[in-house]
Design a protein around this nucleic acid. Structure first.
Lengths: 172, 172
DNA sequence: CGGTTCCCTTGTCAACCGACCAGTAACGTT
DNA sequence: AACGTTACTGGTCGGTTGACAAGGGAACCG
């Protein structure tokens, strides 16, 4: 619900209701809304994590950027809520943004630096271009359906997007 | 404020306060919060509009995709709030999303279809790849600063991003 | 001059928000 | 059997939300 409606839009009562509990119990386990949000972030990044680790574990296969990129796009298609978390928190210079960067984004960015062959372009520029190109269509799926008639949850559309991103950023 | 904090996060009282008026007056001119949001959307897309119309007015220069793309990236750098509006509204299948698509996005997408040479890829795939790659870094500027040390408001960073997007999507 | 319209202020409303509290039941330990 | 810890319930707190109502007052018009 944090990913769906943002931090402000998600109320602890509705979150508790969807989990078939009460708001009192929620604040018992997570004293503040912010702690609940951090737990949700840990959970959601825990889902995305393996999608990276499987394709870039360590060792000789480490520099195969194509498979990493394919896994990244497919993970975004399957779990667009991760992108929502990032965009929602990344806009403001507050505690939530700093926590998300330090605990989840920085390690992943370091991982990206390992795989990326920047080819003269600074890594930050490439990183955000890749992330944006890979995620946006899945993030605004309802809009995409109405605007273009294409359904981002359609496997064929996902494949087409994977192919485009691969062609753009690996040149093949 | 709608772009900064989302529809739910922005309160009519704070909006009125920033405009040096009261919430009562705001609801007088815009009976519902949704009407106020639509007016804000019209305003913000009115800013972005000329950035398109100047580079792709009509006639012979219409198919010069490079200049259109450059203008698009620079407009996103100067006015990241437009992207916020789109992402914030595009997630849910509700009235706001439909209104934004029908009144602002659909005309712009049609304009994109005029200029784009899809080269075998469906326009929707290219459209969202371009939009995401062009906008994300400016949309999450605070996060980018902390994560990478680069400041997306720095003209040099903007130029680098323009160059990368042009190279990716026009192949030059 | 009186009346009408429009802009704006002030105050109020029910609903909802996150946080907090007292009380209770379950459960293993001693 | 008594105890202490943990899990959980129901309710309440001050504060904020969007929407609404009542009224003032200036400008304009006949």
């Amino acid at each position: 619900m944090f990913a769906e409606r943002g931090f402000d839009g998600a109320s602890t009562r509705l979150i508790a209701a969807r989990a078939d509990t009460t708001q009192g119990l929620a604040t018992y386990h997570f004293p503040t809304k912010e702690e609940l949000w951090r737990a949700a972030a840990d959970h959601v990044f825990g889902i995305l994590g393996p999608a990276f680790d499987d394709v870039a574990p360590s060792g000789e296969a480490r520099r195969d950027g194509r498979e990493v990129l394919r896994g990244f796009v497919e993970a975004n298609a399957a779990h667009p809520e991760v992108f929502h978390f990032i965009v929602d928190a990344g806009r403001h210079d507050d505690d939530r943004m700093r926590w998300l960067v330090d605990h989840h984004l920085a390690p992943r960015f370091a991982q990206f630096l390992d795989v990326d062959d920047s080819a003269g372009v600074h890594a930050a520029t490439r990183y955000y271009a890749i992330a944006g190109a890979s995620s946006l269509i899945f993030s605004v799926a309802p809009e995409c359906r109405r605007l273009t008639g294409h359904d981002p949850s359609d496997p064929a559309v996902i494949d087409a997007h994977v192919d485009l991103v691969l062609r753009l950023f690996t040149g093949s």
